[in-house]
Structures are given as structure tokens and as C-alpha cells.
Write a protein that binds this DNA or RNA. Sequence first.
DNA 1: CACCAGGCAAGTA
DNA 2: TACTTGCATGGT
Length: 235
Amino acid sequence: MKKKQNAQELRERLLKIYEILNGYFGDLHWWPADHPFEMMVGAILTQNTAWTNVEKAIEALRRNRLLSPAALFHIPEDELAGIIRPSGYYHLKAQRLKSFVRFFLKEFSGSDSAMKAEPLPILRDKLFDVRGIGLETADSILLYACQKPVFVCDAYTKRILLRHGLIGEEADYLAIQALFMDHLPPDVSLFGQYHALIVKTGKVFCRKEPRCSACPLAVLRTAKRPSSRRKTTQS
DNA sequence: CACCAGGCAAGTA
DNA sequence: TACTTGCATGGT
């Protein structure tokens, strides 16, 4: 079976990447937040936005005692928009937070443990139905706030996998996610740390040059060609 | 100064 | 279905 062998090789390559990055960066304790609800808020605020800006917005919410479903439900949308302004797209995100909170209160009475108790496929569909929650935001909430074994992908994930020849340019979110989920054990800690490592790598090493030799993954690019041409000169 | 960040949805063809 | 555009602040 050629297919099975290929699957085995993919698994090994994905684990190798993880091993290298994990050894390089160590445990990143991703997504520090006081409670799951704060993570869900952060997941919405961080859409296409630098985390440093999101932190300012979350701090502003905390100062205003707004980090609870009830508080966010009661505050007027335009007032909320003013408070989360540093996170960018603030009108849009105020609207999205409001629609998420309405959903969260209606479906789970604002209880994150009630939300966790929901079976994964159903919860995923429900989240995806909320306006302003797309694939990545839904998966971030599922993995980090609800501890569900879902692999979160993003722009960095695609960039890195492309660069290492594991996917093609045409691969979309679901295809990339399937690559990880079909070849790795469904482990919440593994998935969480792996995604964190990918984002960290992207931020630190993939900024300017398309192939940065300082990247810990650089060894894979030169060493792993199946045939011919051994270059031993990369550092 | 230009460019981009841990996306998403609505509009167009 | 596939491509384009609006949304917006703050850091490099």
C-alpha cells in the first residue's frame, strides 16, 4: 500500500517539525487568560490583528469589568466599540462580540462548562453559525477554551507547510487542518502547543526573507530532498 | 513612508 | 464557485 506508506511519512515529517520547534522554543504556554470566556473574547478580537493590540483591548475590558457574558450583554454596542478600539475593526468586533454573547447566553447560559459538555461536531456547527465566527475563530475557541482536539490553522500554518512542500498553493483551511488531524493523535496539548509553535516561528523567522537560514526548520529544507544533490553547506 | 497582523462576511461575476 | 473589497489600530 503506497498510500499508507505516504501517510506514515507525513506523520513522521509533521512530528519532526514539532520536535524541532518544541526543542527550540520550549513550552510557550499559549493563550494566557484568566478563564475560558476571556479566551473566547480574545479569539474574536484577534481576527487579523496583532496580539499586542488585542491585549490593550482586553485590559480595557477588564478595567471596565466587562469580561463576563452578562456585562457584555448589557453594554450598548457603540459604547463597547469605543472600549475595544485599540484592537482595530472596533465597530465590527463590537457587533461580533455582542452576537457571540447572545449565542453563549442562549445556548449555554453563559457557562463555559456547559459549553464544554456539548459534543464536538454539534458545538462546531453551532459556533460556525454565529455571525463573525469563521473557521479559525471557531477552532480556536474549541481547542483553547473548550479543550476539544481540533487543529487550528492560520496564515502562518499555510506559509510554513508550503515552504516545506507539504501542501500546494491551492490547499484551503480544511485541507490543511485535515493534514494535521489525519496524521497526528487527537491530543489537546499537542495541538495547542503545535499551533503556538507555528505562530511563533512565523512571527520570528518568516518576516522578510522567504527562506531564512536562521529558522530552526532550515535543516529540513536542505536535508530532506528524497534524491540527488547533497548540500552540506547550510548552517 | 509603506506594510502587515493569530479573519470574516458581503458583494460581484 | 471563485475572486474582490471593507473593516482600522498600532508596531516595524
